[in-house]
Design a binder for these strands. Structure first.
Lengths: 351, 351
DNA sequence: TTGTACGCGTTATCAT
DNA sequence: ATGATAACGCGTACAA
């Protein structure tokens, strides 16, 4: 006969006790007779009682939801991070709400407002490539909503951060190219505003400088976005230079693949004429021909750690301080798109 | 001085009127003096009043949330669908909650319980490859939660459905292979339980039968999952047969890539010795060498339509009936991994 | 050991 | 035109 779902009031009425007693029984309150507890629990199970989270949310002024803001999910990179986040938060009391900013600062700002509106308890965010101002994240913090930044840094923002040592990854990659005999190494960088772009560029520059190789401006191009298509024109510019590069270190695998595509079109042999190294180690990268050398990032772990950190913040209340900054080490994965290096011939080569 | 956020009570007190009046003013109730309306609105703006959705949720017994259940998001296929869903629902009053079932029936069932608990208003779902029983979806429906099934069908379940004509896609692909001169066409199918697997298999079978080509059992293999690695062994089995196939129609692009990989290892020329056709048209598929012929699916539209349908259901209450079944047409995309076909030489070829 | 009463923020219904 | 009150479901301080 009852229309809606059963409530503690229904149970109370049935048992001729007070709703508060039912509430206490369900929460295993110490000062309760075993009998009543058992009776309540039995009936609750029988009636398939489900606590109304909506009521709890209002009472506790929290939504039990964690917002996750990412620029996109169609790349393996972010979708793997999200999978890591899910796997950690799925076991907790929290729900996660994934929001796509589409690499647009404006959309990101709108999302923040929405998350504020629904009273999220915490936010995990990887900012867009347009984001230079972080005040919208600070707004969250002022509302006592902890923020964890992952992968893409927000310089100057005080928050927990889970990053990747892009500098080291780039340095390692370029250093390897140099050791393998390349001297004219070009770089296909990402959108300039991004911390990852900057750090990878710096790693590239320092590796060259470290080997006393002069830096040539015309060997550095920046792509407008992260898809294959975004890489075509910049790659073409590099490969149309009079003094052809003998190696390209690309911002990510997609761009590296674009470069490979252009190189092949121009009948260049990879890696004999030109070595190509990417970044990200997307699952299909090892299936290209030649298989793509790249820099692997611990994406899944990155997602999991970010999630754990925010859960921790949410559990131990109090003022937000002592922010953590965790930095994962990426790993160079050598495959067939880069020349072999005499001094490292004995290294294991992942295939 | 106020600790929490401003409420209509704060506004009411400040203006010495009743909270209900404030509520009405904010909702533009017709029977209200312009003066009071304006005063309320002005103060609301000044105080940056934000309605407390948590309270509304309790009152309306709904969470304003739509659950989206997908097996995974690391493939471009599902992540693009989700992007479509987001783009539609983002403009509405609803939030979306993405849940990953990891191709596990058990996890799927757990997710349903969770969504029930948080009182989602509707659910979009693409079932796992293990899911044979749909009672958990029916449970949602019994709780007046509309369900929209997308991409992967749930035979026997009465619900709105947004599908792809996998049969036609497969038929077309295999028909093309036949026209291009292949006679020994093998199939790398997906997990057998899946509707998409069944329909693509049937399309394959019918296309052969239609051309009076006998069906050979040893030419049909099924992969356990959808990743590259899952395709390696089945592909190897096919290519170790004494009577080698001269074409492979694969369940998806990943598997097709695996087959290409194995074929190359065995020094087979593609497409001269063997044609390979995939399904999905992942963004990187055109960058392989040879570029992969495949079947394109309107993933983004599929996501958008699914979202629109559930929004429509949510708006127009009433008993759930007259379920819609929308079927998108996939498109064969010819590239370099399949032989050219004399009779279709004039067709445009997407690259 | 258990019941009573109130509050969380909002809206709808009934008064006025 | 607007105020008062109840209700959504639960937890908890206080009372008994």
């Amino acid at each position: 006969m009852k229309k809606g779902r059963v409530t503690i009031i229904d149970i109370a009425r049935e048992l001729s006790i007070a709703p508060s007693t039912v509430s206490r029984a369900l929460k295993d309150h110490p000062a309760l007779k075993k009998e009543t507890k058992d009776a309540v629990r039995a009936l609750a199970k029988k009636l398939d009682y489900q606590p109304n989270l909506l009521a709890l949310n209002l009472l506790q002024k929290k939504s039990n939801t964690i917002g996750v803001i990412v620029p996109e999910i169609t790349s393996h990179f972010f979708s793997a991070i999200i999978t890591g986040i899910q796997d950690v938060i799925g076991d907790s009391e929290y729900n996660i709400m994934i929001c796509l900013s589409n690499e647009s600062y404006e959309e990101e700002a709108v999302i923040i407002k929405k998350l504020l509106k629904i009273q999220v308890d915490g936010v995990l965010v990887s900012p867009t490539s347009e984001t230079k101002n972080f005040d919208h994240f600070r707004t969250l913090q002022k509302n006592d909503i902890p923020v964890v930044v992952f992968d893409r840094d927000c310089p100057g923002l005080e928050a927990d951060k889970v990053l990747v040592d892009d500098y080291a990854g780039a340095f390692q990659a370029v250093e390897y190219l140099i050791k393998s005999g390349c001297t004219k190494i070009a770089h296909l960088g990402g959108p300039l505003n991004l911390s990852t772009t900057k750090h990878r560029l710096q790693g590239y520059l320092d590796a060259l400088e470290n080997a006393d190789i002069p830096i040539r401006k015309e060997y550095i191009e920046h792509v407008p976005g992260f898809s294959h298509d975004d890489g075509l024109k910049p790659a073409e510019r590099l490969l149309k230079l009079e003094d052809l590069p003998d190696a390209i270190f690309a911002m990510n695998d997609n761009i590296a693949i674009s470069a490979m595509h252009i190189a092949r079109k121009m009948a260049l042999k990879i890696p004999d004429d030109i070595s190509i190294v990417g970044f990200d180690d997307e699952p299909h990268s090892s299936y290209f021909r030649p298989s793509l050398s790249t820099v692997w990032q611990p994406v899944y772990s990155l997602g999991m750690l970010s999630a754990r950190i925010i859960l921790h913040r949410l559990n131990d209340k109090g003022p937000q301080k002592n922010f953590r900054q965790e930095v994962f080490k990426p790993e160079l994965v050598l495959r067939a798109s880069s020349r072999e290096c005499a001094s490292r011939k004995n290294d294991k080569v992942k295939l």
